[in-house]
Design a protein around this nucleic acid. Sequence first.
DNA 1: GATGAATGAGGGTTCATTCAT
DNA 2: TATGAATGAACCCTCATTCAT
Lengths: 216, 216, 216, 216
Amino acid sequence: MGRKSIADIRRTELAQAAFEVLAEHGLQGTTLQRVAAHTGASKASVLHYYATKQALIEAALRKGNSTLREEAVLYMRLAQTPWERFYAIIEANFSPTTYLPRMAHGWVAMCAEVPHNPQFARLQRVIYRRLNGNLRSALIAVEPDADAAERGANMVSLLIDGIWLRLGMQVGGLSREEALDHLESHLAQRYGTTPERLAARARMAEVAATLAAKTV
Amino acid sequence: MGRKSIADIRRTELAQAAFEVLAEHGLQGTTLQRVAAHTGASKASVLHYYATKQALIEAALRKGNSTLREEAVLYMRLAQTPWERFYAIIEANFSPTTYLPRMAHGWVAMCAEVPHNPQFARLQRVIYRRLNGNLRSALIAVEPDADAAERGANMVSLLIDGIWLRLGMQVGGLSREEALDHLESHLAQRYGTTPERLAARARMAEVAATLAAKTV
Amino acid sequence: MGRKSIADIRRTELAQAAFEVLAEHGLQGTTLQRVAAHTGASKASVLHYYATKQALIEAALRKGNSTLREEAVLYMRLAQTPWERFYAIIEANFSPTTYLPRMAHGWVAMCAEVPHNPQFARLQRVIYRRLNGNLRSALIAVEPDADAAERGANMVSLLIDGIWLRLGMQVGGLSREEALDHLESHLAQRYGTTPERLAARARMAEVAATLAAKTV
Amino acid sequence: MGRKSIADIRRTELAQAAFEVLAEHGLQGTTLQRVAAHTGASKASVLHYYATKQALIEAALRKGNSTLREEAVLYMRLAQTPWERFYAIIEANFSPTTYLPRMAHGWVAMCAEVPHNPQFARLQRVIYRRLNGNLRSALIAVEPDADAAERGANMVSLLIDGIWLRLGMQVGGLSREEALDHLESHLAQRYGTTPERLAARARMAEVAATLAAKTV
DNA sequence: GATGAATGAGGGTTCATTCAT
DNA sequence: TATGAATGAACCCTCATTCAT
């Protein structure tokens, strides 16, 4: 367990660095040179671990994605009711450690490249399906009509995408709180203001606060 | 009227070509070479009209944007009630001539570059403000609370952004009809199903159909 | 007399402009574009009068040179004794209208190109011979030994070159007065302080002052 | 001692090559392509060692300059009296290994660019100050009036500049011996023909001959 | 395992020049 | 006469990648 060869450590380190460079400089500005400099290594050294720039960037994006996923899993474990599972997803998508301009910008950069890069397209599809799937399976419990649940999930994920896009552009960007408020406003209209939902929301917000405090 | 110098014609032609290349190959892949080839001209010739690649791409984006805006103006002129004005905006954003993967992809490519390009940021800000402003000023008539109207407008524009983003990525992309349905679903919950709204919607859909037929 | 076709006028105008651009921007910076802009004409128009950039620049240099020569001729006409002829040359080379950083810089730019441009070499040779010849033929009257006169002339022309070079570089540049003082210091040591020389010097300085006043 | 990394060797090699190309083709003609070809390397390889053409050319000029300076230092070490120090400078400026058309032409090319290139201006200023300073500090011993020494130094440096300029242009160029004769003629008139000076001159000429023989 | 050396491919840009009007 | 249009050639520079150590 936890045994990682030095090579593996180095690889994750590089992927991490690549993601940070990507988030700061965009895809165009992500050169091997810069990634290398960011880890204090040489350009050739980077290519020693990732045969190709392409491979490195994919790893970087996978890493960025897995960060988000791990967070989501963390929240999910503590959720017990459908609405709690639902809010777990929401909180994960707007947690203080991931809902960051840098993250968002990295994500938007990837989105822009999706149509030209099958690898990216695949990854994006995975992300999309996971998000939509999770939302749907949470909603189906409170909204038994499969179509309605599907549509409800889609609506939420569209809002999340829109909000992240703006965060990535820093144009019309919303703070974490504003973002959550917007979503809440939508949910209130769609699902009414039931005590269950409100309780679930409060509970997961608390969980989020606890986890955030621990992370810091 | 309609008098345009040959130079102006050539310039729009090039901007158009640039937008098409941008839509097809992304920003990275939009080289002067390619744009030139796309119009059967030489690389130097392109620079004869646009001193700089940057200038060319900005022109391309402005052109793309103005297409959308002109469409919106067209719809707006025929709108008479607040709800009609509202739906004019919606229809313009999902008209068959603009709600196209190519368009969307070009837009996403620009979004990704916004944080690194002040010019793009400015353009994006203009677009954002226009859309939000138009929506808000339409909604304020039906939702007199300024804050509520603001929020309502924002919600709709977020949905539009999310939908366009997906169209641009071709992942989870919605057809024009699905997109309009989603929006309608949101509006129904938020504003109720009033005859005025439904009438306005029907009226503008008809207008859209007429205009689309004429364009084709 | 004085009849010049419009074309000829335009040609001199362009040559003049080219010289000014050359003086300001150096040879590298002297593009057809800039010369054209400097006269408010189009690039193609310039090439209409000078088939080639090369030809234009040669004309410019010839023009610059002829300015200097005309000045020299002016002074020469008023010189009556050998020493006066000698000082006429000196004053011409340091007249307020020609001993200017811009002029000097243009000249240095030409010098640098001499080894790569036979035309320039020819022109430079002409200039060199004229200056040395004039000095020698003036000095031979006061220094009958031909070899000594040759050497004396050469020494003076070397000093002039050195002084102009510095003016052109704006490094260790001498003012007109300092330049003349330096030369005088050299002459005093070489030819002694004879009344004839001093008188001639005073006379030509006066002539220079008169002419300068008239020019202004 | 003498330990230089391969990179350093390559760098000096390239600077050397650049200087040779500069001397042969002028500044305009000094392209990375040509410098690369001159060393049998690729264009990109040159930029591997000098990030910029500008940097390369500066290195080339510094190298050319340092060659001259090192020679001067060599001579200076063997000088013991003020006049010997003076002649050390003279001999260094006209030594057979540096007083060469190529060298001179490279220098003139730099001079022409001085007004447009702060870096070059700085270098030129350094050269100018060193030469003038050395001459002055040697002369002050034989010509105690500081102003007179300053002027004497300036006169000599002007002559040197003039002579080098002509060598660089190959127009009116003087051989090493002629150049030294000219200077001697000037010095004889300015400082008289004292045994000390003659002895110093003879001594440094001998030193020069010895060093030249050794170099060859 | 790590890295400097070297390079090919390609990108944006400048510029003199040709051509047609 | 005058000029816009168009272009080829060349330049500097960037970058991912290969190779040898």
